[in-house]
Design a protein around this nucleic acid. Sequence first.
DNA 1: GCGTACCAAACTGTATACAGCTTAGAATAT
DNA 2: ATATTCTAAGCTGTATACAGTTTGGTACGC
Lengths: 231, 231
Amino acid sequence: MAKTVSNVDRIYESLRQMAADFAFKPDQRINESELALSLKASRTPIREALNRLVADGFLTFQSGRGFYCRSLDPQRILDLYEARVAIECEALRLTCQRAKKKKIDAVSNYLDEIEPDYAACTDVIKLLEMDEEFHLRLVKLSQNAELERMLRNLNDRIRYIRMIDLKRLRSKGKGTGANPSLSAHRLVMSEVRNGKPARAEKALRAHIQRRREEATEAVRTAYSQLYVPTG
Amino acid sequence: MAKTVSNVDRIYESLRQMAADFAFKPDQRINESELALSLKASRTPIREALNRLVADGFLTFQSGRGFYCRSLDPQRILDLYEARVAIECEALRLTCQRAKKKKIDAVSNYLDEIEPDYAACTDVIKLLEMDEEFHLRLVKLSQNAELERMLRNLNDRIRYIRMIDLKRLRSKGKGTGANPSLSAHRLVMSEVRNGKPARAEKALRAHIQRRREEATEAVRTAYSQLYVPTG
DNA sequence: GCGTACCAAACTGTATACAGCTTAGAATAT
DNA sequence: ATATTCTAAGCTGTATACAGTTTGGTACGC
């Protein structure tokens, strides 16, 4: 009957969601009292949660001036994509070294399972969730908890831009049928199953790199969306 | 005349140092009131700092039960070494792609500069500082702020074990003269300068891997040191 | 018109109080 | 002796108060 989730956890989750979605505009000062009011709590737990978000890379903190939303700097976004490559490719390498065949097949099966949804899905958020889930499962195969932790953090911080990017892709090439990500995922898995770590890594690297190249444009779009009159 | 560093920053730094040095024993519950007394502050800023340390991976948090020191699990330490490989090797790859020759040479020069100190140094802490500084400069060459941030965090969390490891190496092979790390560093730099990313990566990977293999034994030693009667 | 000094409002930083939960230990029953 | 319940001490979670700082605006001097 124990309350497993505390108030500060709830607040932290809310704020993280808000930060991920850029409910705070880039470089905007964050008003603690306002948040306390809207989240129905006092400033103390709010500040605790904000501190965690600083360490997560969502916010920055200036002594005496409070918390600020992270800036939306194209270069920093590119950095995040590169960090993803670092984490995911090393995980892939480790996976090829030591993952059980059964576990690998399970991830391949996951791709098969979601394929109908993935192909038909029009909800960008759902789409991104499935994509992240695949990449996360892939990294989990490495059996390295730290790499998994790092990927989760990167996903959180890069999600907003990836969402913008996906929206752009959909609106541009709508009705093209087969999703390019899905086939890229399949290619990676097939190389892993065949025990070709170098080829798998190359495929994964190319897959992420392709998205990375669109990031700068996505950041531009994100700005315009964040600053339109109607939220 | 502005006070650039706040109280909570001071507390955070103190606590991080304590956590890195395992002033809190693995899995030990952390008493906030005690800390407040010893750091001469109230519980509020203490808790803010503790929350940051949770996000940094130094502590864990259980709702209703407070903060706990991270456990000292050999597997988790091995994970950290693998994460280092991920970060540093990708950084190296990026460095070979885009770092200016001048900047690369500067890091090589840094190795030359510290060589006398490095060879003569008997202080394990200083030695580790120089080693970390080299690896950090190497990652900085990649011009990726995120990779740099990640390496700093990993260094903080792995430092204690690396220190134990270095102590063991020194006591075992004392008076052997040339330091194996230094020559490994030189090899990496020389491959980078020659524009051989694959060979540089292989050398760096092997260098970190060698330390990783000793980590389990170092954890064992760490345990025995942490739990001896006299601190 | 431009820059500076000053003032008030707003906000952050921290201490403190207290309610509620957790936990360890004593007392009791089996 | 062992298991169980109860109790009290200690600790965490959060609200609130207030001191000190930052900030934006206004009045004044140049």
